[in-house]
Write a protein that binds this DNA or RNA. Structure first.
Length: 801
DNA sequence: CAGTGAGCGAGCTTCCGCTTGACTT
């Protein structure tokens, strides 16, 4: 047996380090935290100085017992978890749980996985830093208290199963408030003047810095220019430069992969995980922009050999984020001389992005010559301005250009245009001048990645939680990621050409969104409730404030239980007060009087989501009418006209010749119902006017599609089918979808075999007999397997309902 | 997924942060 046991957090890290240390060391991984607070109410003994009850979750039992065994046999145990709050706590939990002895345990830390760094760490061991551990406990306890006291308030006052927390509730608030800013926004139009001078390759654009609010002003300007003379009034040339961006952190990687590759944040993380596990990149959950000495040298070698000396420049980046804990390096390729990797397309592209960004971060700046020409108009006092940029040295731009969220904004694209050679006083020939009506833009909706950016700026969340947080707010139904169609709007363009001004009307599409985050009604109602009753918790600076106090605890300046008590006492009072006094929040909004019947119209959240009601619930004689809101509609913005539309039924039974066919509109759009089958109406077909022929066509097409999927049917039972799915063949039986067991040839399967599989599955879902069934149905991605394993029966009944 | 929204009430839900698989129709 090895004399030394060294424990790190990640198995991939363990493998690498084992290679550095030789046979005297066994290197193992704890797979993150090995203990957590128990799930029940009594996890924290509040009167007893917030004493915690911890347990080893079911999925960690095995690893803990293995580590225990190895620790017993070892002469020395080296706790090498990350050097940050959580890492220190992991070491402490290991110390406690494995029953380690003070004199046989050493705590070591390193910030990069390089041989010299590991050796140095082993030469400089220390003891567990209990101040840091206390800071982590304060963080853990605060999050539990907030989450587990706030959520039940929502169950009582809004809806069961909802959740609130220090991080997720602020994420939702950001999205809700942004949506309201957009709703409130009034676009203002103004005319932008652009002139084109010269011909062919010599032509260039110039713009008037001012804009005109009224068409008359723009028109007058163009008219004034008909017979005007244009000459170069001044020329200003000066050098400018651009520097490369720092190498990736988790958050910047997520942003850039979203902009350049169109990846969701969770996709980025899972692809990066694969690259990390196969040793291609360094650790992908980091807030550090630092590169190891080894990496700096390797990057230098790569850059000088590929591009030459003058392209290289040593750079050290400093983190801008106050909340950064910098336990790791920045994300970089493990080996800079590896330009491309094997693997699927996503891995290749993400690796390339990481490689370029890291290499560019050690390259020299790009140099430009920026020219600004002012052009005088003989008939007006304003000057036109033309900007040109010439690259003198490409520097880091040879490999990488960071994109920005405003890339789609092309209103200032003249900035990097090239100007022809110009002289002061030179007369210019006007080719064309336009005055285009341009609208101001509302604030941009968040994408997953821009929300991560914002959260990081506010110091909320950690690299390991950005992706899960984004999923949580969507899984809870507070936020949806959607594509929405825009509206067309008209804009006017005046054109001066050949000594005449012409006007035309053009149309543009505006407000179309793809993969943007929208709040739902429930998200808005929960947010408003929290803002009203728990302003302090959902305050954007709450996390930053408590982080300051955690830092004081970590430095030994503050006692953690005092800090938590100071926070908890008023917070808990607020919780109780809210439970007693607050009204139920249903987001109700008045929609006025129904024009035909004079009854009250209102809209609010119900059991099945937001709906419109006409008439009074208390009225015994006449039941009120109800209609669900549709995708894209919200309580706070729906108008009475839109609400009335919801009650119009397109085609009722009997309106078609085929008596079994009706058209209706569900929450997810218009659909045809034929007997008991549903067929959604393709976009562009109006459900109010759809003809029977069109409906029959849609049904036919759907049937053809279904038939294409069909491989085989069985005479014994028409419900049993062999189908072709996205990942190969599977068995369909009624509503059940059954995977084909490994090693079986799909076409050889007999009906009996299929039936047996189906029966087994049905039994499984009714009475999950253990791990398999429970693990097979995590509704959300995250809910710990612990719950599922512990209470499988409860979970199933809840779902059946 | 797909036309419902009463009221009763047992037993359930829920946090953030550290990790990786098993899984997907």
């Amino acid at each position: 047996m090895a004399k030394n046991l060294l424990i790190v957090e990640s198995p991939a890290k363990a493998k690498t380090i084992e290679g550095y240390l030789g046979k005297d060391f066994t290197v193992k991984s704890s797979y993150g935290h090995i203990r957590d607070l128990v799930k029940s109410e009594d996890a924290i003994d509040i009167p007893n100085n917030f004493a915690q009850r911890y347990e080893v979750p079911a999925d960690k039992k095995q690893i803990v017992s293995e580590l225990k065994k190895l620790a017993k046999e070892a002469e020395m145990v080296w706790l090498a978890s990350d050097e940050d709050r959580e890492g220190e706590a992991i070491s402490w939990h290991l110390f406690e749980t494995l029953g380690l002895k003070e004199d046989k345990t050493k705590r070591i830390v390193f910030h990069e996985i390089t041989k010299p760094a590991i050796i140095k760490a082993i030469e400089n061991p220390r003891k567990i830093d209990y101040n840091l551990v206390n800071a982590q406990q304060a963080r853990r306890v605060l999050d539990r208290l907030v989450g587990f006291e706030l959520s039940p308030v929502l169950w009582k006052k809004v809806k069961p199963s909802l959740s609130a927390g220090r991080v997720q509730s602020v994420a939702v608030r950001l999205i809700v408030e942004r949506e309201r800013e957009i709703n409130k926004f009034k676009a203002e139009a103004a005319f932008r003047i652009v002139a084109i001078f010269g011909k062919g390759r010599e032509s260039f654009k110039a713009e008037l810095p001012e804009r005109f609010a009224e068409q008359e002003q723009a028109e007058k300007f163009l008219n004034d220019c008909i017979d005007a003379a244009f000459n170069v009034k001044s020329l200003d040339t000066r050098p400018t430069k651009r520097s490369p961006a720092a190498p990736f952190t988790t958050s910047t990687l997520q942003q850039e992969a979203s902009r350049k590759l169109g990846f969701s944040v969770s996709r980025t993380m899972s692809v990066a995980q694969k690259l990390y596990e196969s040793g291609k990149i360094t650790y992908m959950r980091t807030d550090s922009v630092n590169l190891s000495e080894t990496a700096l040298t390797a990057a230098q070698q790569e850059i000088t050999s590929a591009y030459g000396d003058k392209y290289h420049q040593f750079r050290k980046y400093k983190t801008k984020s106050a909340s950064a804990q910098e336990a790791h390096e920045a994300i970089r390729p493990t080996y800079f001389n590896v330009h491309t990797v094997d693997g699927d397309n996503a891995e290749k592209r993400l690796y390339e992005l990481i490689w370029k960004r890291a290499i560019a971060s050690q390259m020299s700046e790009a140099q430009f010559e920026k020219t600004t020409a002012k052009i005088e108009i003989s008939t007006r006092k304003e000057d036109l301005v033309a900007n040109g940029e010439v690259m003198k040295f490409d520097g880091f731009l040879k490999v990488y250009l960071e994109s920005s969220d405003e890339d789609e904004d092309n209103t200032s694209d003249e900035n990097n245009a090239i100007l022809p050679p110009l002289n002061k006083g030179q007369l210019l020939a006007l080719q064309e001048m336009t005055a285009t009506e341009r609208y101001s833009r509302p604030p941009a909706r968040y994408t997953e990645a821009s929300l991560v950016k914002k959260l990081e700026e506010l110091g909320i969340g950690r690299p390991s939680t950005y992706a899960p947080t984004i999923s949580t707010v969507q899984n809870r139904g507070y936020v949806v990621k959607e594509e929405r169609e825009g509206k067309t709007r008209n804009y006017r363009v005046l054109t001066l050409k050949d000594k005449a001004v012409k006007q035309e009307q053009k149309t543009e599409n505006t407000g179309a969104e793809k993969n943007k985050l929208f709040p739902t009604d429930i998200g808005a109602v929960v947010n408003d409730f929290l803002v009203q009753h728990f302003k302090g918790i959902v305050d954007f600076h709450f996390t930053a404030n408590v982080e300051k106090q955690f830092d004081e605890i970590a430095q030994g300046l503050t006692n953690w239980t005092n800090m938590i008590r100071t926070f908890y006492t008023p917070f808990h009072e607020g919780v109780q007060n809210t439970i007693e006094t607050a009204d139920k929040a249903r987001g109700e909004r008045d929609l006025g009087i129904h024009p035909e019947t004079g009854k009250k119209m209102s809209v609010r959240i119900g059991r099945y989501g937001p709906f419109v009601q006409i008439g009074d619930s208390d009225n015994e004689e006449e039941k009120p009418l109800y209609a669900s809101l549709r995708t894209g509609q919200m309580i706070e913005t729906i108008t009475q006209e839109e609400a009335l539309e919801l009650f119009k039924l397109p085609k009722k039974a009997g309106e078609f010749e085929d008596k079994d066919m009706t058209v209706a509109i569900g929450k997810f759009g218009p659909y045809i119902r034929h007997n008991s089958s549903f067929y959604s109406l393709p976009k562009g077909l109006d459900p109010m006017t759809v003809t029977e022929e069109q409906a029959i066509e849609i049904i036919k097409e759907k049937r053809i599609k279904d038939a294409e999927k069909l491989i085989k049917t069985f005479d014994e039972d028409p419900e049993m089918k062999l189908l072709n799915g996205r990942w190969g063949p599977y068995i369909g039986y009624g509503k059940l979808n059954i995977k084909i067991p490994k090693g079986k040839e799909p076409l050889q399967l007999t009906f009996e075999e299929c039936k047996a599989l189906a029966d087994a599955m049905e039994k499984d879902t009714k009475k999950p007999a253990g791990k398999k069934a429970a693990a097979a149905k995590p509704a959300a991605k995250k809910p710990a397997t612990k719950t599922a394993v512990k209470k499988p029966a409860a979970k199933t009944t809840a779902k059946k309902k």
